[in-house]
Computed example of a mutant assay.
Amino acid sequence: MFGYKSEGVEYPGLWLPELGRSEEKLLGFHDLLEIRFVHAFRKHGVSLQTIRAASTQARELFNQAYPFTCKQFQTDGRSIFATVFDQTGDEAILDLAKRQYAFRQVIGPSLYEGIDYTGEGRALRWYPVKRSKAVVLDPSRNFGKPVLASTGVDTSTIYHAYLAEGRDEKRVASIFEIPIAAVGAAVSFESRIAA
């Protein structure tokens, strides 16, 4: 994310951090989503060199600072492909590292699941729990901290209240005037990230 040094060679980060003006190493909303994509590509066996080349090409091709979140990528475990329109206006698959069109079967990662996009294709908000919209990360709400989508109360606050109240979900729901299910969703989410 912030670059590294190996055998005397300095390698820059894959992109400029969203909050890069700070002296501290901080991550913004789009950084978090880009890291999620890089992690998934690595899990599928794509090399860091290929990811770096694909990121550079995609940034130029799509004119986006955070290209992997623009909902057009797939992988076969060796390369990263983007769905683009060719010269005839037909949809085609482009190998980003090689800048060649591909015709082989590719695997579409389920990374786009839970991400809402603007009309321009920019990531807007992310629901990190599969098949649930109870918890959301939205840069326009509570500075992008995980919050309960229905109330805007951050999940960390609910979780700490749950611990302080002897793990009594009903009591916490009463204190915050929210449904017990919302308390359960916040506790479940926070427990997962604490593990």
Rank of each mutant, 00 (worst) to 15 (best):
V129P: 09
A134I: 00
L124M: 11
V136K: 00
V135L: 01
P139G: 10
A134L: 07
S140N: 12
W126C: 01
V135N: 02
E120P: 01
K130R: 15
L124Q: 06
G114A: 09
G121K: 14
L124K: 01
Y127P: 10
S110F: 08
L111D: 08
I115L: 03
L137S: 05
Y112D: 03
K130A: 15
S132P: 07
R131S: 15
S132W: 01
R122A: 15
G119W: 03
V129D: 04
V135Y: 00
G114C: 02
L124T: 03
L137K: 09
T118F: 04
Y117H: 14
T118G: 05
E120V: 05
A123F: 15
A123E: 04
Y112S: 12
S140V: 06
G121L: 13
Y117M: 03
P139F: 09
V129F: 04
L137M: 15
Y127I: 02
S132C: 06
E120T: 15
L111S: 13
G119K: 15
V135G: 13
G119V: 09
W126T: 01
Y127F: 15
A123Y: 11
L111M: 14
A123S: 10
Y112L: 08
V136M: 02
L111R: 13
Y127W: 12
Y112P: 00
V135Q: 01
K133N: 11
I115F: 04
Y112A: 10
P128E: 04
P139A: 10
I115W: 08
S132Q: 11
D138V: 04
S132D: 11
S110R: 13
Y127R: 04
W126P: 02
P139T: 02
Y117L: 10
S140K: 09
E113M: 13
Y127Q: 04
V135E: 00
P139Y: 06
V135A: 03
P139V: 11
V135W: 00
S140D: 07
A123L: 03
S110G: 14
Y112G: 15
I115Q: 05
P128R: 00
R125K: 11
P128Q: 07
V135I: 14
V136I: 03
W126V: 00
A134R: 10
S110Y: 07
D138F: 04
S140M: 07
R131G: 07
L124N: 05
G114D: 09
E113C: 12
Y112N: 14
L111Q: 14
L137V: 04
Y127T: 02
I115C: 08
P139R: 02
G119Y: 00
T118Y: 03
R122P: 03
R122H: 15
R125H: 12
D138P: 02
P128K: 02
